[in-house]
Amino acid sequence: MIFKFANPLKFQRFTKQIQPFALSLSIIFLFFGLFFGFFRSPPDYLQGETVRIMYIHVPCAWFSLMIYSVIAMCSIFSIAFKHTLADIISRSCAPIGACFTLATLVTGSIWGKPTWGTWWVWDARLTSELILLIFYISLIIINNAYENKEKGDRYAAILAIIGIINLPIIKWSVDWWSTLHQPASISKLSSPSIDNSMLVPLFIMTFSLFFFFISVLLLRIRGEIIQRKIDVIKFSHVR
């Protein structure tokens, strides 16, 4: 099943069929998410209306970590098994992940000013998330630094594997060290400490951003495969 789609050309055809569905699901969920977020959910007892920033901040933060894990797994796969599709996926993921990370930092900053009384502090959670952004930007730079795409893919994959260590640090920074950032409200082991009326828009927005990620990713993968085809034609012409 996996190896059927592991052929880049077959995968390209598959993305073309799936991408419009993902995009329309994202738009539908976005509509409902914003509606529930703005009109059908209560203000917080302490933060007031500022709590609504959470509906965009939290999903962005989740996906900034998830997309990096995708890149990391593809990088291990790429170095061990040398498969082109893994390179294509991690190359396509990096800018999307960078955008989600930037959105996390910016929305968090906008929330932090009225809540904490500061735009930015150097606590463990905020700093490790900033380091994640730096990793993403480095991956994009390395991917595009070499004329030879294979070289760029390989060096970026090595950096991505080194960056894996940052993921658990971001996730558990709030438990390991005292930070200004609050600990996670939603975890597997205990019931969420967010009221149900606020969980609804949060999860709808998460679905929306998930399908948005999928649709942009498929679009970028398709572009990347076409680009590689063009490169092959160009270089064979030169020879």
Partner: peptide, 17 residues
């Protein structure tokens, strides 16, 4: 010199509080 409010992980509407 600086005072920062720390928010906890609980989110709820005012009525429930």
């Amino acid at each position: 010199k600086t005072v920062l409010a720390k928010h906890d992980e609980n989110y709820m509407p005012p009525e429930i509080k």
